[in-house]
């Protein structure tokens, strides 16, 4: 299987690393080889945070080569242009701006809602996503985040069938 490449970009404090952990774990649970790269440290202080997630039958480098991302997910409008070079020419940009179009619960579940939107573009089984969300978050936050994920997934599937990005 060809390696699937995803870049998630946002700002420190938005839960970008947590979101990448959930995606990587969902792919792992689905039986794929997985690698994930990120930069910590300074990034905690409100600066740009990028994470690369790759899965397939065998993944070598943990970083998505420039111009090879199948999907770029951005959690802040300021992080679109500086990350566009990561996308392959026919790659898909998923901006958190789309969250304005549907109800997804509280703001702190926005990143998980975006994972729901992303999930509509990927071939990972829904139960792997659910298990990964449960595994990454404390139990008291499961219901809120599973609901946000479902809302995002629903909106993502609707957008796919209507041909919108």
């Amino acid at each position: 299987m060809k390696t699937v490449n995803i870049v998630i970009a946002g700002l420190g404090g938005q839960g970008i690393v947590k979101a990448s952990d959930i995606l990587a774990d969902a792919a792992f649970r689905a039986g794929h080889d997985v690698k994930k790269a990120e930069v910590h440290g300074m990034s905690q202080r409100g600066g740009s945070v990028n994470t690369d997630i790759r899965y397939g039958s065998q993944v070598l480098s943990p970083m998505v080569p420039d111009g090879e991302a199948d999907v770029l997910v951005t959690m802040d409008v300021t992080q679109i242009e500086n990350n566009r070079y990561r996308l392959k020419p026919d790659g898909k940009l998923l901006s958190s701006e789309c969250l304005k179009d549907f109800e997804h619960g509280p703001a702190r579940a926005a990143t998980v809602a975006m994972l729901g939107v992303l999930s509509a573009c990927l071939d990972l089984p829904e139960d792997a996503w659910h298990a990964a969300i449960r595994g990454a978050l404390p139990e008291k936050h499961h219901a809120m985040n599973l609901a946000a994920f479902a809302a995002g997934r629903h909106a993502g599937i609707a957008a796919q069938s209507s041909g919108r990005p």
């Binding site: 700002l11 420190g12 300074m42 990034s43 905690q44 202080r45 409100g46 600066g47 740009s48 990028n50 300021t78 992080q79 242009e81 500086n82 990350n83 070079y85």
Partner: peptide, 8 residues
Amino acid sequence: PPAGKPPQ
């Protein structure tokens, strides 16, 4: 590479 937002 395009500059991101620096930490603060």
